[in-house]
């Protein structure tokens, strides 16, 4: 079953069009990357199915069903959890409360507070401190843990390596590989190519709001990367 599909999607912030005829599909167990330079519309893909950017032309299906009017909670209730760019940890809540907030959709599954604490033991140690009192890497762990608390069918990771030290990126890559091994589908939006190569199977390259190339990571050449991703 398709977990998330874009069919010929145009999307807008106000009158400004960002996505132009974007199509892609993610099925159960797949690990897909969306690549491209800053400002080409990668995060707008996420913002469109979250209802932050408005859908113009085209259709989005969530868990195999047409999205209809997209509300901010629509994707989460269709089993899609997002680790947003910049993490968006809520500082007014403790670490534990941020995690509990992630379980708002009440989907059945194996992810519990205890299991998230086992995956990221530092979160157990600091569970009563403010979410924003954590370091950048710990906040990323919290954002991932919060998303897992929803027991998602599809985990969307928007620039998870942003601002993190290489050693932390390696640790997170291990976590993503482990999640993928357990059958969680992944949509990875990322510019850190070594992380993408470790985690994703297929890619879609965005340029000026449109998908210009698609294929498997094994086929992706340095020449293509230089053309579309390198600054």
């Amino acid at each position: 079953m398709s977990l998330l599909a874009f069919r010929d999607v145009d999307s807008f912030y106000g009158r400004a069009q960002v996505l132009r005829g974007v199509s892609f599909e993610i099925g159960a167990g797949e690990r897909v990357a969306i690549l491209g330079r800053n400002g080409v519309g990668k995060t707008t893909v996420v913002n469109t199915f979250l209802g932050i950017a408005s859908l113009g032309k085209g259709e989005i299906t969530l868990a195999g069903k047409p999205s209809g009017r997209i509300r901010n909670y629509t994707a989460a209730r269709a089993g899609i959890s997002v680790v947003p760019q910049g993490r968006r940890i809520i500082g007014a809540l403790s670490v534990k409360e941020n995690l509990v907030l992630g379980s708002a959709v009440d989907r059945k599954g194996s992810w519990t507070l205890e299991r998230v604490f086992n995956l990221f033991p530092i979160l157990r140690e600091r569970q009563d401190t403010s979410g924003t009192a954590l370091s950048g890497g710990q906040q990323q762990m919290l954002a991932i843990g919060r998303a897992l608390m929803a027991n998602p069918a599809l985990l969307v990771l928007d620039e998870p390596s942003e601002g993190l030290a290489p050693v932390i990126i390696d640790e997170l890559a291990d976590v993503f590989v482990r999640l993928a091994g357990e059958g969680t589908s992944l949509l990875l939006i990322e510019q850190h190519i070594s992380l993408v190569r470790r985690v994703a199977q297929t890619y879609h390259m965005l340029s000026k709001g449109a998908v210009v190339e698609s294929g498997t990571l094994a086929e992706l050449t340095d020449e293509q990367l230089k053309r579309h991703v390198a600054v």
Partner: peptide, 9 residues
């Protein structure tokens, strides 16, 4: 925004 993203109506 983040609260809605977690599935809260």
């Amino acid at each position: 925004v983040t609260t809605g993203m977690q599935g809260v109506d």
